[in-house]
């Protein structure tokens, strides 16, 4: 079969995760291009209405395993189920969200199946590939596109010879789009005893403390983001002040997060969150491609930077050349008046 399989993650609230619906939307387009079936696999404990949650995104068949021991993700039971389903259904492509679950599970599966896996793709396309040496032509394979080497290049990765072709994609990178409200498929209920081994439960979960998501960067209409150029954690307070004044959230680059200026949850970019706000104010951000990959779809971009040649300026609608610590107070003052 040349079908596409999407691993659908279940959230703490027992819904299909956003990233999985985004992947289904993208996979539906790839499936149409390949004239193939879109399958989804869901593993959990009595999840309500998975058909209603998945069919509108174009899923044709759902493989569903429900078991009281699987309320929370555990590597080995999920690994056993996925590898068996992949062997039975022989999908051409398998996609995972690049979440803490997907990044734990997908590499182990790829290792077992000895197939290629590309992490954090920013785009997926179908096309042909000719091997440079053997001149063998591979038809309709998956182009797995991602920034590489410090973000100075965009690489197109292919796994021409092994199947399935596997990739992970971050939340927010693909667009969630309803395919057809009335689309219907079928559900295959899997029995745990056919797919999971007793020994798979050798890691015991003693305690879980899950916080409700406090910081909502992804949904924010306005983002005031700071880079390494902000200089310090204290200076980040100014970003919060501006964000509060204009009803936005504070985001950050990886360099700023790594420097300890702000929380991990605020990181925007290839290895953080992808955002599409109506206004993005980039403060002290030079604009490495990994960061731009997470924000270049913003409707309006203002760049504040001391360096007139910062790459961020090339994608900005407005550029203010100056020290953020000098410019930001002026913006705050202006809006407060």
């Amino acid at each position: 079969m040349n079908n596409i399989l999407v691993f659908c993650e279940v959230t703490e609230e027992q819904h299909i995760a956003e990233v999985s619906l985004e992947l289904c939307s993208k996979a539906r387009k790839l499936a149409d291009r390949l004239n193939s079936r879109l399958d989804a696999i869901v593993i959990g404990n009595e999840i309500e209405n998975i058909e209603g949650q998945l069919y509108p995104y174009g899923v044709d068949s759902i493989f569903y395993l429900s078991d009281s021991r699987l309320s929370f993700y555990q590597t080995l039971p999920f690994f056993s189920t996925l590898t068996k389903i992949i062997k039975e259904e022989t999908p051409d492509i398998v996609l995972f969200g690049a979440t803490s679950v997907g990044r734990d599970l997908a590499p182990r599966i790829a290792s077992y199946l000895r197939c290629g896996l590309t992490a954090d793709c920013t785009s997926l396309e179908i096309g042909d590939h000719t091997d440079a040496k053997t001149k063998t032509v591979y038809k309709d394979i998956l182009y797995q596109i991602r920034p590489a080497f410090g973000g100075n290049i965009i690489a197109t990765i292919v796994s021409p010879e092994t199947r399935p072709q596997m990739a992970t994609v971050r939340e927010g990178v693909m667009k969630k789009e309803i395919y057809n409200e009335n689309h219907k498929g079928e559900v295959h209920n899997l029995k745990a005893e056919d797919y999971v081994n007793e020994g798979d439960f050798c890691i015991e979960i003693i305690e879980r403390q899950i916080e409700a998501q406090k910081i909502n960067i992804k949904g924010a209409p306005i983002i005031v983001a700071g880079g390494y150029g902000m200089g310090s954690k204290e200076n980040f307070a100014l970003l919060h002040e501006l964000a509060n004044a204009i009803g936005g959230e504070v985001g950050a680059t990886r360099a700023a997060v790594d420097a300890g200026f702000t929380e991990n949850e605020r990181q925007i970019g290839q290895t953080g969150i992808t955002v599409r706000p109506k206004l993005y104010i980039a403060c002290g951000i030079s604009g490495a491609v990994q960061h731009r990959a997470g924000m270049d779809q913003s409707s309006k971009i203002i760049s504040i930077n001391t360096d007139p040649n910062a790459p961020i300026n090339a994608i900005a609608d407005y550029t203010i050349i100056g020290d953020v610590m000098d410019v930001l107070p002026k913006m705050i003052k202006s809006i407060k008046n």
């Binding site: 290629g116 920034p147 292919v158 994608i315 609608d317 407005y318 050349i321």
Partner: peptide, 23 residues
């Protein structure tokens, strides 16, 4: 290694109309 690099592209920034604001 099943994964192969098909192509690499240097990142070229697409410039849109950019308005300079004085500080």
């Amino acid at each position: 290694s099943p994964t192969k690099v098909k192509s690499i592209e240097n990142v070229v920034l697409t410039s849109k109309e950019n308005k300079k604001i004085n500080n």
